[in-house]
């Protein structure tokens, strides 16, 4: 860690309580609206070209009619040791000083290496220039750039929202309060299954949840050090 992350006030992380998640996919819709994600038509979707920054995986347990379903929203895990980063030849994906794993669209040439090296398969590619059915193109978020065809993209933890809150806090010369930053998925979750906050602040909600006995990380054994923490379903 000789030249690792310089100490910054924030280390953003997310906690997802799988006990609370109902699999309603409101987070998926909210993410699309917030981040100007292009829509794929049914034919494209059937070819495996759906473009979601967050998806809800379903795990079934048992035989019908006695089936238990586990819903698990999967988004970019914002790994501290992200496998996608060192392999990008043009530095399009890299670690920003707040520990976020960010994607610089303008640098991306589309080698796909990052996506192949992501064990969570959360990166999505713009196979064509993005398009929206009428009148969806009228509700674009002005804070988020629209990505051209040929570049890779993925969840940013709604970096535009983080920046806005940080700027407001800076202008008011006050620290960012816990829960002040709310990415679109967190904001829209009706079951309040998702919590976002600063893992550097020991008193924040995410930090407290992170110490919970149910806390796990997805494929922790790969050593990627994800910043998304899942609270396992209680039996």
């Amino acid at each position: 860690m000789a030249t690792g992350n310089p100490v910054k006030p924030h280390r953003w992380g997310m906690v997802i309580d799988l006990d609370r998640c109902t699999g309603c996919e409101a987070c998926v819709v909210a993410c699309h609206a917030e981040n100007n994600i292009g829509m794929s038509d049914p034919e494209e979707a059937a070819r495996g070209r759906v473009n979601h920054w967050i998806r809800v995986d379903r795990y079934y347990e048992g035989e019908f009619p006695d089936v238990k379903v586990k819903y698990q929203p999967v988004l970019c895990q914002h790994c501290d040791e992200a496998p996608c980063e060192p392999v990008c030849p043009v530095n399009a994906t890299y670690h920003n000083p707040e520990g976020l794993n960010v994607q610089v669209y303008n640098r991306c040439v589309g080698t796909f290496y990052c996506a192949n090296n992501c064990p969570y398969t959360v990166r999505s590619f713009n196979w064509f220039d993005p398009k929206w059915p009428e009148p969806m193109q009228l509700q674009h978020n002005p804070d988020v750039s629209i990505r051209p065809g040929g570049v890779m993209e993925k969840c940013t933890f709604c970096i535009q929202k983080i920046k806005r809150v940080e700027e407001q806090a800076h202008a008011g010369s006050r620290p960012v309060a816990d829960g002040e930053v709310q990415p679109a998925c967190v904001q829209s979750c009706p079951a309040e299954a998702m919590v976002f906050g600063d893992l550097n602040d020991p008193d924040s909600k995410v930090s407290r949840f992170a110490g919970d006995g149910r806390a796990t990380k997805l494929m922790e054994e790969l050593g990627t050090k994800p910043k998304v923490i899942y609270l396992e379903k209680a039996r």
Binding site: A115, T121, F125, G150
Partner: peptide, 15 residues
């Protein structure tokens, strides 16, 4: 002209 969508690639078969 159209983008890499004209190939059979998809997520996660990027190569």
């Amino acid at each position: 002209r159209d983008g890499l969508g004209v190939t059979g690639l998809n997520r996660p078969v990027f190569w």
